[in-house]
Design a protein around this nucleic acid. Sequence first.
DNA 1: GTCTATATCAAGATAGAC
DNA 2: GTCTATCTTGATATAGAC
Lengths: 188, 188
Amino acid sequence: MLECIKGRKSSREKILDAAAELVREIGSGRLTLDAVAERAGLSKGGLLYNFKTKDALLQAMIQRMIDEVQAEKEAYRATEAPGPNFEARLCVMACLSMRKGKMREVANGMLAASAENPNLLEPVRQVLGTVLTDIKQKSEDPEAALLAWLAVEGLNSMAMHNISPFSDEDCGMIADAAKRLLEKGIAS
Amino acid sequence: MLECIKGRKSSREKILDAAAELVREIGSGRLTLDAVAERAGLSKGGLLYNFKTKDALLQAMIQRMIDEVQAEKEAYRATEAPGPNFEARLCVMACLSMRKGKMREVANGMLAASAENPNLLEPVRQVLGTVLTDIKQKSEDPEAALLAWLAVEGLNSMAMHNISPFSDEDCGMIADAAKRLLEKGIAS
DNA sequence: GTCTATATCAAGATAGAC
DNA sequence: GTCTATCTTGATATAGAC
């Protein structure tokens, strides 16, 4: 949060980027400090100065993912037009934004943490719990809202594991369908 | 397929069960041959007689998962009442059945393979591709069908990573909502 | 703040006895 | 078909120089 005075990214950011990139390339369980250090352009010593242990690195990857999604959601809160199932719509939009740009890589932190030490996912657990109660309480149609949210989570999960069979057009169509479901609900 | 003459499970089955169990307990990236051997009740030598390499074990875990889901789907094909989006309904039902019993553990094979060697997920990729074209072609309402399928996949993904915030009642409600979406479609 | 060197340990795989 | 070594590699983490 404080690192942006210089034009260059801080070492921490470069390291987190490198780690997230590597997960997809070599597998979440093969993420080694050596590989991260090389990709980030410093030595293992330099890496371990920034993150005392591998768990600390993974924890930071998780936290960054959570922060980015949260920020994305709040950005949509400011720009989205009001309407039914507003809170769920924000979640869906934020999830969908994980398909593009840096966010896509950032999500790999979850895979890496899950592989190494499932306990590190505790913060994610908590966020999902909050989102669930939020959607349940604030939605005009909670069932449609949960289906839409889960659908984009499913989409993201497949993308994260690199097994998504969906083309970009498919994804656009699904995104539209999810938004329509949020607006109109399930037919009766 | 041929191992069921004796009352006992074959060694291969015991090994696959042990491996699937361990993934959730210690993390997909920490799955070691030693741990699997101990849990399965044999030595590492015995384990490596059954599976020449760790990749072979992971590949077998993946294949078993695919086979079980496929079998579940075909079982539903025989018993489910006909109706709209029939093919999608089978997929949704099969996915939902992964929440119970042995199936739940079996799905962990995907995590283990993803951690160790993402290429091992290729069979999963192919199955998902087939399911997608199937649902697209055979559904009266492809958009509703895809949303319902993705929603239960999202549910499974969270369960697989042990980050699901959904209670059993939640899951029942979501399952019902997904089925209703398949029957009635999105409101217009 | 980053580097090299190294200690320590765990994991996959092999060989051969039973 | 299963067991007990053992080989070899690679990965985390530490210590201390620059």
